[in-house]
Simulated scan of single mutants.
Amino acid sequence: MAPESLLVAGVGDIHGRFRRVESWLDALSEARGREVDLVLAVGDVEAFRLADDHRRKAAKRAMPAEFAEYADGVRTMKRPLYFIAGNNEDFEALHDTPEGLQLAPNVHYLGRAGVKELHGLRVGYLSGIHAPRFYEQPLKRPRSLDTAKQAGYFRVPEVETVLGVKDVDVLLVHEWPRGLPQRAQEQGVPPGRTLPSYWIGNPITRRVVETVHPKWVLCGHSHRAFAVTMGGHGGRPATRVACLDQAARPEEAVFWMELQGREVVCAGWGTSGEVSWRAGQPWGLGVLPAPSGPTEPMGTGY
């Protein structure tokens, strides 16, 4: 019997734009001629119930708090969406459930660090970004704007948890692993492509990837699409990394993978359903969609 086919969509920083993301997933399902089975979001989901919540950044308070419609049952997410925390979340609501919880029908917070089996896939995850000053400090309850900001930083015990996981199909992280531009430079930069700063990302996430050796890594935070291969030396398996833009336009904010069993057989960007990569082909900047204009400033993660 052939292994079961699965369509998985990765989504970049949603920043509260739930309706928009759902319309993109509708379009992708129609284009592929099948339903999206599983949605994985890479943080900065911003599942706030109130638009003017003082914990939201000022730039976001002018936008509607779309998540309230899902939390109150006015709308229901059509497909199961699992997300990690970025550095901009309702951390007060997430604090007491570091192992994850369901926030609304089909909307699930995975937790701060660990691994879960979703639709037969082993999905590892590390929420937050790296802040060296707080890396070894205990996590405080987010009672103020300051402690809420600190809740968006991962800590040593969380990193140690994810370092111990094995046999990971997809690893979700918010901040890029350090060294992706250098790796892309080694693999060759196609004409018309520019590389971000060599200092983008953090070394802790890189260590996690190099230790866990996941088949795929999905990340966000820096609001730019990027694709590169890590590892693959000394007999160790290669890891394919896909960095996603924020949910501003689907071409670079949505990345989908079609699997047979636990193996990705093809993948693509956006909602057109067009395949940009098939198993056995190289993975790198050449699989990205054509540049569509200037990107937003990198590293903001606002």
Rank of each mutant, 00 (worst) to 15 (best):
D37K: 07
D169E: 11
A290I: 04
E99I: 02
L218G: 00
A9E: 11
S222T: 14
L38H: 02
Y135L: 14
E35Y: 03
P191Y: 08
L145R: 12
K78N: 08
A2T: 13
P294G: 07
V36P: 03
K60I: 04
N202T: 07
G192C: 10
G231R: 09
H108K: 04
L126F: 02
A253Y: 03
E46H: 07
T147W: 07
E46W: 01
V189T: 05
V189S: 06
R49L: 15
N88Q: 15
L195A: 09
G273D: 08
A2W: 12
V228W: 05
P132W: 06
K60D: 15
E99Q: 14
Q102P: 04
A113Y: 00
A242N: 04
A113M: 01
D96F: 14
A31W: 01
L94K: 00
P105T: 12
R49I: 11
K215M: 07
T300P: 00
E89S: 00
V115E: 10
L103K: 00
R56T: 03
P203W: 13
A59V: 15
S197Y: 05
A68Y: 11
H221D: 14
E158G: 01
W176N: 13
L171E: 05
Q137R: 15
P181K: 09
E66A: 08
N106L: 03
D146V: 14
G301V: 04
V170I: 15
V165Q: 12
D90H: 05
M257Q: 15
Q260S: 14
M63G: 01
N106Y: 02
P3F: 08
D169S: 06
W269N: 05
L6P: 01
F255S: 05
Q102I: 05
R155G: 04
G111K: 04
D52Q: 10
I84K: 03
M298G: 13
H174S: 06
S5F: 09
K78T: 13
D26W: 12
A267K: 05
D90Q: 07
G284Y: 00
E258H: 02
T211F: 04
R32T: 10
L38A: 02
S29D: 09
F154Y: 15
T211M: 03
R141W: 10
P294V: 10
D245W: 09
D44S: 04
S276W: 03
S23K: 14
R61S: 02
P214H: 03
E274G: 13
A267L: 05
P177W: 03
M1A: 13
A47I: 05
R193A: 10
P80S: 04
V228K: 00
Y198D: 15
R49S: 14
D52A: 12
G10F: 06
V115F: 01
L171F: 04
K215F: 02
W24R: 09
V165L: 10
R224S: 11
D53F: 06
V217Y: 07
Y198S: 11
